[in-house]
Design a protein around this nucleic acid. Structure first.
Lengths: 243, 243
DNA sequence: AAGTGGTCTAGACCACTGA
DNA sequence: CAGTGGTCTAGACCACTTG
């Protein structure tokens, strides 16, 4: 009975907000049981499906989860899961191609691409990345070079990795794994990035994988310090939106 | 008419799977319009709400989005958004407290905690982290030390940061921001981590923030190479779950 | 047996886009 | 105008948990 009505706002959002507020303010805490659907139906004078819609939205956003036969519980927030943006191409980021060659892969690349011991060539694409005119990172990408396949050129179209490849074919057919490490600049990379032997680089490796765990591509990016910083968020400050 | 029925599987999941498969196989590609709700109602001989439930689940998983008055479109997958796990405490990870002190903060910490120029003390908690008996990382945490507040001890309970603090009060009231950089080990850190001056460390900074952007805590972790590796996933290989 | 959430239906009205 | 998705309802049956 303590409810405003007739706002243009959908009823299910009103209910969701009300519950969410209680969770955020700590009136309801992780492990606590929420009021039952039927209780909410009476409290808000809404239909059961409408109440369920509210609860579903809270569930999607990670606030609650349900247990059939028992009820809805407040979840424990995952403050150690981060959503991280790693934009291959941003507005200010410029790429300069250094080289595109077909080579016999190093052991590292063999392992990364899951290529057996057989001698199999790979395509190596190297770029330097620039941010507002300043050297920012060195970027390497590797793709298996299959004889049976088209030309290098068509491989190259794929080569610019997911974001462009995505536009071409079944972009939901693969996913990406990322590994982040730190590395001291090796001699060749010192030359390319124009840095010294005591420079610590942020190294981001990426594996492009098909749904059946086959590896489509492998990339590595050496990012200069001060320039490069990866930023991630955890918790619930952002809209739930997609994944 | 081309539909199996009477499986124990919920109808809405059957519909969702069918559509999802078309998207994954590239029959439907980003930008394409899906069949309308009413069309699916006829095709699958289900009610409209059931069809909508299917579509809602695909939307939640990031496969599609809707535009009122037009229809449902296949989305463009975000292959540059990564879900990254940064576990404060894993099974094998051991923490050894080094020190807990109340200090005047360095400039870096002042900025991180958003403390003005006024002389304000902060609590510093330092730990070393060990993985299977091997030194793994050096961990620093800072909390504003408010006079009006309880004792240091009660602050300390908060201090172990979100995961433990979470259990205490309104854990949905704050979120975490993470920054990842690479850094060469400084002299004091060389001693603590027992490494040399040419060691590149992975540095993870974390800001614990309230919903109104106030900063609750600041932490920094220096992770030894070879030991530490951050791993993230993008795309749709994982169940949608949470976040 | 009573209460819970999970699925599903057949209708209704609305606001919007497009021809 | 007909077609689309967005919201909402009042029922129904089910499987599950708890006393």
């Amino acid at each position: 009975m303590n409810i405003k009505k007739n706002t243009g706002e959908p009823v299910y959002l009103v209910i969701a907000k009300s519950l969410k507020e209680m969770i955020i303010k700590g009136v309801l805490n992780p492990g606590n049981l929420l009021p039952s659907e039927n209780y909410l139906v009476n409290q808000f004078e809404a239909s059961r499906e409408t109440v369920r819609k509210s609860l579903k939205s809270l569930e999607t956003e990670g606030y609650i989860h349900s247990q059939p036969g028992k009820g809805y519980y407040v979840s424990t927030p995952k403050h150690n899961q981060f959503l991280l943006n790693f934009a291959e191409e941003s507005e200010n980021l410029q790429a300069k191609f250094k080289n595109i060659t077909v080579i016999y892969p190093t052991l590292e690349v063999q392992l990364a691409l899951g290529i057996g011991e057989k001698k199999k060539k790979v395509i190596e694409i190297s770029k330097t990345l620039w941010l507002k005119g300043e050297l920012f990172a060195y970027d390497l990408k590797y793709l298996p070079y299959d004889k049976g396949q088209p030309s290098i050129e068509s491989e190259i179209n794929y080569a610019v990795f997911p974001d462009i490849a995505a536009a071409k074919t079944a972009p939901f057919a693969f996913y990406t794994k990322m590994e982040i490490t730190a590395e001291t600049a090796s001699a060749p990379i010192q030359k390319i990035l124009n840095c010294s032997s005591d420079t610590s680089l942020l190294v981001v490796s990426r594996f492009i994988m098909g749904r059946d765990e086959d590896i489509i591509g492998y990339g590595k990016q050496y990012i200069l310090p001060n320039q490069g910083k990866l930023i991630g968020y955890s918790g619930y400050q952002k809209d739930p939106g997609s994944i």
